[in-house]
């Protein structure tokens, strides 16, 4: 089981008129097998939070503490654009992030490629795949290191609605089977309600405004009444916080 603790996290960019506060005094505590969505208007520091948690960016101040079962484990990350190495084959892309280049790792990568239904595409270059397939490779890559914690930054926002929907279902299945802690950034409230146990609402200026628990059984069908009601509730929260205007 993993635990993520964030204390007094502050991040800003630029000087003077260009100054942007991306995160302001954020405190978080996430534990165990949960799916946490982070929603909010664009420019509210959602992606910045993931980047700091994963070590891509450094914070201006505050502490981040990620506890995992094995001490050398690395969180997985699924990016908005797949970020595959265009000059390496799909299989090589997965092997790139493995700690060991042994047969075991190779078998594991193959297993996760099978899971995203790309088992026969291992020899292809990313440029030969469609956008949806590339994103699936990105998901397989994140799972293939078998992390306790998984960060996802609007992974489906570049895809068409139908592809996104089937990938959401696949993702949910994988999360259920592998019992990971997932932090999922999205601007789509419906997506957040469909997938998560917990929704964190950020406002412009990087303030954590609300922490909503969604207590509905899985699998959730977006056309289901209970899910629609929950979505309406979250959107009402948005209205209360005056987030819709932006």
């Amino acid at each position: 089981m993993a635990e993520i603790k964030v204390k007094n996290l502050h991040k800003e960019f630029g000087v003077g008129d260009d100054r942007v506060v991306a995160l302001e005094n954020v405190n978080l505590d996430i534990e165990g097998h949960v799916f946490v969505s982070i929603v909010g208007p664009s420019g509210c520091g959602k992606s910045t939070l993931l980047n700091i948690l994963s070590g891509i960016e450094t914070a201006s101040s505050g502490t981040v503490d990620i506890t995992q079962d094995s001490h050398d484990a690395n969180p997985g990350y699924v990016f908005q654009a797949a970020r595959l190495l265009p000059w390496r084959s799909v299989m090589e892309n997965l092997m790139f992030v493995q700690k060991e280049r042994d047969d075991e790792a190779r078998a594991r990568c193959q297993r996760y490629l099978d899971m995203v239904q790309l088992g026969d595409k291992g020899d292809k270059f990313p440029g030969e795949l469609s956008g949806g397939m590339q994103q699936r490779v990105g998901i397989a890559r994140a799972f293939s290191i078998e992390p306790d914690v998984l960060f996802m930054d609007e992974p489906f926002s570049h895809l068409d609605a139908i592809t996104a929907r089937s990938l959401r279902r696949e993702l949910h299945e994988m999360w259920k089977q592998t019992k990971k802690t997932v932090l999922f950034v999205t601007h789509d409230v419906g997506e957040a309600v469909e997938l998560s146990n917990r929704i964190l609402v950020f406002a412009k200026g990087g303030k954590l405004e609300d922490d909503i628990t969604v207590d509905l059984p899985f699998p959730r069908d977006p056309s289901d009444d209970a899910v629609a009601v929950a979505k309406a509730q979250v959107l009402r929260k948005f209205e209360e916080l005056d987030l819709l205007a932006t």
Binding site: I52, G55, T58, A59, S61, G62, T63, V64, D65, I66, T67, Q68, H71
Partner: peptide, 11 residues
């Protein structure tokens, strides 16, 4: 329990 290695450098 382990501190993620980045905490030491960034905080």
């Amino acid at each position: 329990r382990a501190h993620a290695r980045r905490t030491a450098t960034t905080i």
